[in-house]
Write a protein that binds this DNA or RNA. Structure first.
Lengths: 100, 100
DNA sequence: TCGATAGTTCGACTAATATCGAATTAATGG
DNA sequence: CCATTAATTCGATATTAGTCGAACTATCGA
């Protein structure tokens, strides 16, 4: 469990972001995080095993969508809203504005 | 080569759109179409074989991103800008505004 | 220090996806 | 009708991705 690596906004890649968002579980995570400021990994596993979720969080982190930091035994995730809006204005809004 | 099926905007799925855009070749197609009004399939194959391109066009069509209609022996593709903007305001703009 | 809790990592398995040559369909022009 | 051009479809293969149990690591509290 060494520290996570979070990409710098300058190295965000649109393809990678789109790939991250193409999975229903991950899109669900992003939508949830958008309304919540921060959330522990455990809050977001909807019946799915932890190992699967851990995988999805990694994809989201490596794409630059989510930032994770450890706080005790729980790990808190946040949407990298500001950086994403700066680099891809409108993108996040388009996703979240969307009905479902 | 029976007529293509193009999904109705009401059945556009964000996951499907993101998946379509997660491939470099397809993202390139979309970016190109954004500035061109319409283009034949052949114009967009950058060294890639036709069969690969045909595959990518199908994915783009089925996601609702691209509309194709036959005109003689060539098939013309257009970005479904209006429908996409109506259903996911800001999404297309965010993609195309992007530097690279 | 032990046990519980939160996540990660590993490995195996399965399912999707991409690639691309070859065969096929369709329209056009001569 | 035949040759050409444009693109799709088919199949085989290779790569990538998702799923999930089991083992592991780290932190906290009693």
């Amino acid at each position: 469990m060494r520290p996570y690596k979070h990409p710098d906004p300058s190295s965000f890649a649109l393809e990678r972001i789109f790939h991250a968002l193409s999975d229903p579980a991950r899109l669900e995570i992003v939508r949830h995080l958008a309304g919540v400021e921060q959330a522990a990994c455990g809050e977001l596993e909807f019946g799915r095993p932890k190992s699967s979720m851990s995988h999805h969080f990694r994809i989201l982190r490596e794409a630059g969508l989510v930032q994770t930091h450890a706080a005790g035994t729980t790990h808190l995730n946040t949407l990298r809203k500001k950086e994403l809006d700066a680099r891809f204005p409108g993108l996040l809004g388009a996703i979240l504005k969307q009905p479902r």
